[in-house]
């Protein structure tokens, strides 16, 4: 099998990997983020980014909405370029697209729960067009329509109304289940490991947030998603322990090695650590000479780059102090 890959992988992924090797050198360096953090106005941001791949997407951006739109367009073009035309197997493409589908499903259900129009909460980054969520009739593929059905069955009251604050957890459970299935289907060890890591991170995030909000033990189990390396049973038993002891026990896990136990008791700090842990795993894909991994790693790094730019630019427009923004970006980019 390994011998066959020596021949088949370069044939299948060679061109995309070659492009990625060059494009990796054009990922934004830390110094660019530092300059963006020090910049005073959106015009300065545009000037700094003008010579990067984002220049064209943000050249007329004035408001947070323009920034969102420009960065979404940058991401959509990246997906089009690498996920649709890089000859990657369908499950690998689905792994990246499906999270946007679930984001859209979340937006659609939340909009319904809050009684607002769903259009503003939908993007075209998923595998399903945004209008499939709002159009007449049932247009969603089976995976999404089944997920929607299960969520409605679990959360809706007698009149069919959904509680907005519980939709996020329910969507997470569906998303991580889907990611696990897709990763398994792909046969890619890299994706399977990433799916397990993302499920673990999702569970730890739910753990830390539930702890912060003092959610009762009886309610916390359903917030944990399947597919992680730390079982839900263990997480529940840790949840019963005093916070410091639970954080210390969690910190001893291989998964979060090197993470300060105090960060496992602070949702804001954990969010930063979570992105860092995933980035670290994604960067390891650079060490693979040939195969889908470098392409997937690059796409994931660009996603992180877009998230970081969104944080810096929209945070800057909203007047968030640069020190606080710098904290969010620490070790992520």
């Amino acid at each position: 099998m390994a011998y066959a890959r020596v021949i088949s992988d370069p044939m299948r992924y060679g061109f995309a990997v070659g492009r990625v090797r060059v494009l990796e050198t054009r990922l934004l360096p830390r110094s660019t983020y530092e300059r963006l953090l020090d910049a005073k106005t959106i015009a300065d941001h545009r000037r700094i980014l003008s010579e990067t791949v984002y220049g064209g997407y943000l050249e007329t951006a004035e408001t947070a909405g323009d920034v969102e739109e420009g960065l979404d367009k940058a991401l959509a073009d990246l997906y089009e370029d690498f996920l649709e035309h890089a000859n990657l197997p369908a499950p690998l493409v689905a792994y990246f697209r499906v999270r946007h589908d679930f984001e859209n499903l979340k937006g659609y259900l939340k909009a319904e729960a809050l009684g607002i129009s769903p259009e503003v909460m939908l993007t075209d980054l998923g595998s399903v067009p945004a209008d499939a969520f709002t159009g007449p009739g049932e247009k969603l593929p089976e995976r999404l329509s089944n997920a929607e059905m299960r969520i409605r069955k679990e959360l809706a009251d007698e009149d069919g109304n959904l509680p907005a604050d519980e939709i996020e957890d329910a969507i997470d459970t569906e998303l991580f289940t889907a990611l696990e299935e897709i990763a398994e289907e792909s046969g890619s060890r890299f994706l399977q490991d990433l799916a397990v890591l993302e499920a673990d991170i999702g569970n730890l995030r739910a753990f830390v947030r539930a702890r912060d909000k003092s959610v009762p033990v009886a309610e916390v189990e359903r917030r944990f998603v399947p597919g992680g390396s730390i079982s839900r049973k263990l997480l529940v038993s840790l949840y019963r322990l005093p916070p410091a002891e639970a954080a210390a026990r969690l910190a001893s896990k291989q998964l979060v090695r090197g993470v300060d136990p105090e960060a496992l008791a602070d949702p804001r700090r954990f969010d930063i650590e979570a992105v860092r842990l995933i980035s670290r795993r994604v960067r390891s894909s650079r060490m693979v000479a040939m195969g889908p991994e470098p392409v997937l790693g690059y796409v994931r790094e660009r996603q992180a780059e877009v998230t970081a730019l969104r944080t810096v630019m929209i945070g800057g427009l909203a007047g968030v102090p640069s020190d606080k923004l710098r904290d969010h970006l620490k070790d992520v980019v």
Partner: peptide, 21 residues
């Protein structure tokens, strides 16, 4: 034939992004 195709697939990707290489 296989060796050249393997490398060339990658090098054409590189040249597509940076013709100077």
């Amino acid at each position: 034939a296989i060796g050249i195709t393997s490398v060339s697939n990658t090098t054409t990707g590189i040249v597509a992004e940076d013709a100077e290489k």
